[in-house]
Deep mutational scan, measured.
Amino acid sequence: GYDPNALYCICRQPHNNRFMICCDRCEEWFHGDCVGISEARGRLLERNGEDYICPNCTI
């Protein structure tokens, strides 16, 4: 089920109804503003069928 207190992202904070994006490599969720991806950019990636790779996986 959905846990509203689950911690995500590099900031280890809950979802808090903020835009989030999922890394296509590790499948962890990240707040867009923490990883520099706007909601519009996230939608563009999705539309173009491009993967989002998080900072942890791009090292």
Rank of each mutant, 00 (worst) to 15 (best):
A6H: 05
R25T: 11
E50G: 08
P14K: 15
C57F: 00
E50F: 09
R25W: 04
D3S: 14
C11R: 00
G42Q: 12
G32P: 06
G32W: 12
W29P: 12
M20A: 03
Y52S: 04
E28A: 06
Y2Q: 14
A6I: 03
G49L: 07
I21M: 07
L45G: 08
F30D: 01
F19D: 07
S38V: 12
P4E: 04
A40Y: 07
M20W: 03
L45N: 12
N17R: 08
C23V: 00
L44K: 12
C57V: 00
E39V: 09
Y52A: 08
I21L: 08
F30R: 03
E28N: 04
G36Q: 10
R47I: 12
H31F: 02
I53L: 14
L7G: 13
E46Q: 04
F19T: 04
H31R: 02
L45M: 07
L44I: 04
S38E: 06
G1W: 03
S38K: 05
R18N: 05
R12W: 03
D24A: 14
R12N: 07
N17I: 06
Y8V: 11
C9W: 02
A40G: 07
F19A: 05
I53D: 02
G1E: 15
Y52P: 06
L7S: 15
E50Y: 02
A40N: 02
F30K: 03
S38H: 09
C11E: 01
A6W: 02
H15R: 13
I37H: 07
E28G: 11
H15E: 11
R47W: 08
D3G: 04
G49Y: 10
A40W: 05
I37T: 12
G1K: 15
G36E: 12
T58V: 08
H15P: 06
D33G: 09
D33F: 04
L44R: 13
P14W: 02
P14R: 08
D24C: 12
N5W: 01
I10E: 06
R41K: 10
R41C: 12
S38N: 04
G42R: 15
W29F: 14
R18P: 03
L7P: 06
R25A: 14
P55G: 02
R47D: 15
H15S: 14
Y8P: 12
R41T: 07
R12M: 03
C9G: 02
N5V: 05
G32V: 08
N17Y: 07
H31G: 02
P55E: 07
G32R: 11
Q13L: 07
R12S: 11
N56E: 10
N16M: 12
A40T: 07
F30C: 07
P4W: 07
T58L: 14
Y52K: 05
Q13C: 04
I21V: 14
I53Y: 14
R47E: 09
Y8C: 12
P14E: 14
C9N: 00
W29D: 11
E50W: 03
W29E: 15
V35I: 14
M20G: 09
L7H: 13
P55V: 05
F30I: 03
H31V: 01
I10T: 11
H15T: 13
C34I: 01
Y2T: 15
D24Y: 07
H31Y: 01
T58Q: 05
A40F: 04
M20E: 03
G42H: 15
Y2I: 15
Q13F: 05
H31C: 03
E27L: 07
I21Y: 11
I53H: 07
F19L: 10
P55N: 03
Q13P: 01
H15C: 11
I59A: 10
G32D: 12
G42W: 15
P4M: 11
D3Q: 10
I37E: 08
C57E: 02
H15D: 12
C34Y: 00
D33E: 09
C34S: 00
E50C: 02
L7M: 13
C9A: 01
C23G: 00
A6V: 08
V35R: 03
D33V: 05
H31Q: 01
N5K: 04
C23M: 00
D51A: 14
D51C: 07
C11W: 00
L44H: 13
I21D: 01
R12I: 02
A6G: 03
D33H: 07
E50M: 06
F30A: 03
E50Q: 15
C9S: 00
P55D: 01
S38G: 11
C23P: 03
Y8H: 11
Q13E: 12
R43S: 13
N16K: 09
Y52T: 09
Y2H: 14
M20V: 07
Q13M: 14
H15Y: 09
Y2A: 09
D33M: 05
C11H: 00
P4A: 07
N5M: 07
L7Q: 11
G49T: 08
C23A: 00
C9R: 02
L45F: 03
F30Q: 02
G49E: 15
C57N: 02
G1S: 15
T58S: 12
I59L: 07
E27H: 04
D51E: 11
